[in-house]
Computed example of a mutant assay.
Amino acid sequence: MTEVTVTAVMAELAGLEDAAMRAVNEKHGDDHGVNLGKLRAVAKRLKTDHELARQLWQTDDTAARLLSLLICRPKAFGRDELDTMLREARAAKVHDWLVNYVVKKSPYAEELRVAWFADPDPVVASAGWALTIDRVTKKPEGLDLAGLLDVIEAEMKDAPDRLQWAMNHCLAQIGIDHPGLRGRALDIGERLGVLKDYPTSPGCTSPYAPTWITEMVRRQTTPA
């Protein structure tokens, strides 16, 4: 792909920019004003184009990076390239999509999970926790679930926001998916009180772990 193509895509994204939406997104750490449904429509039209995806990522523009993650080939990125991309991912949505849409599909997912989990940068560490959550649910064999609860119990209360959110999600997921540890997960959540007062929209489940665990278990056990 040529630079002209990148320029054309950037112009299209600029045309989709909405000032009011940007103002809302900026409150959540995302500096873009493009409707995600419209962004996905652009990605659907462009189809998979890994070279264009690389070029869009290099623009350092949040909307362009989100688009790049939708049109890339996840398995085409090298291990060090993904590590660099994560550390470059300023916006929360870019960070989230990179982990969930790309890294989870990479052959380096487990290697990066272990490395990021222990990283001193709390934002990078939160990616390690996000990948750990995936294993808690899908492939818990080999994970020290009780040890994860130990870390959560000791560190979640004072963790920076994004890392705290990931730890809290892991706590809830352990409680939901592993009945033998559910009582301890509930107890940790109740004692720490993390996100207990988080504003939750009507019809949505609170991220407060005891409420989250209880509601998801109820749904699993209630006949359809």
Rank of each mutant, 00 (worst) to 15 (best):
D121W: 08
A89F: 08
P74F: 06
G142T: 05
D134Q: 10
L186Q: 04
D96Q: 13
Q173S: 09
E155V: 00
K105E: 15
Y101G: 13
A146V: 13
A118H: 14
R87H: 12
N168P: 07
I176L: 03
D150T: 11
E111V: 15
T137D: 09
L143V: 02
P122E: 08
L98H: 07
I176G: 01
W165C: 02
G78Y: 11
A125V: 01
L186F: 05
A154K: 15
K105Y: 12
A146E: 15
R184E: 04
N100C: 10
L163C: 09
G147R: 04
M167H: 01
S106R: 02
A92C: 12
E141K: 11
D150K: 08
E153N: 08
E81D: 13
C170L: 10
R135L: 12
C72F: 05
W97V: 11
G78I: 09
R73P: 00
D161I: 10
Q164R: 12
V99P: 02
P120V: 00
D119W: 10
H95C: 08
E141P: 00
M156D: 03
D158R: 10
N168V: 07
L145K: 02
T137A: 15
V151R: 15
R73W: 05
D96S: 12
L163A: 05
V114N: 03
L86W: 11
R162F: 01
V99Q: 10
L163T: 12
Y108R: 02
I188L: 04
P140H: 05
I71H: 03
D80I: 13
K93T: 13
L98W: 07
R184Y: 00
D158I: 03
L149A: 07
R135M: 08
I188W: 01
R87M: 13
I133T: 08
L186I: 01
A130K: 06
S106P: 08
I152L: 06
K139C: 05
L148C: 12
A76V: 08
P140L: 04
C170W: 00
A125K: 03
R113Q: 12
D144T: 05
H169S: 12
P179M: 04
M156G: 06
F117A: 04
R73M: 14
S106I: 07
K105Q: 14
H169D: 12
M156K: 06
D177R: 12
Y101Q: 15
K139D: 06
D161E: 13
R162N: 11
P107W: 10
L82A: 10
F77A: 06
L171E: 04
N100P: 00
W97F: 14
P107N: 11
L86R: 05
N168I: 05
C72P: 07
A185C: 07
Y101S: 15
A166D: 05
D83S: 15
T137F: 10
Q173I: 00
N168T: 05
W97N: 14
A185P: 01
I188S: 02
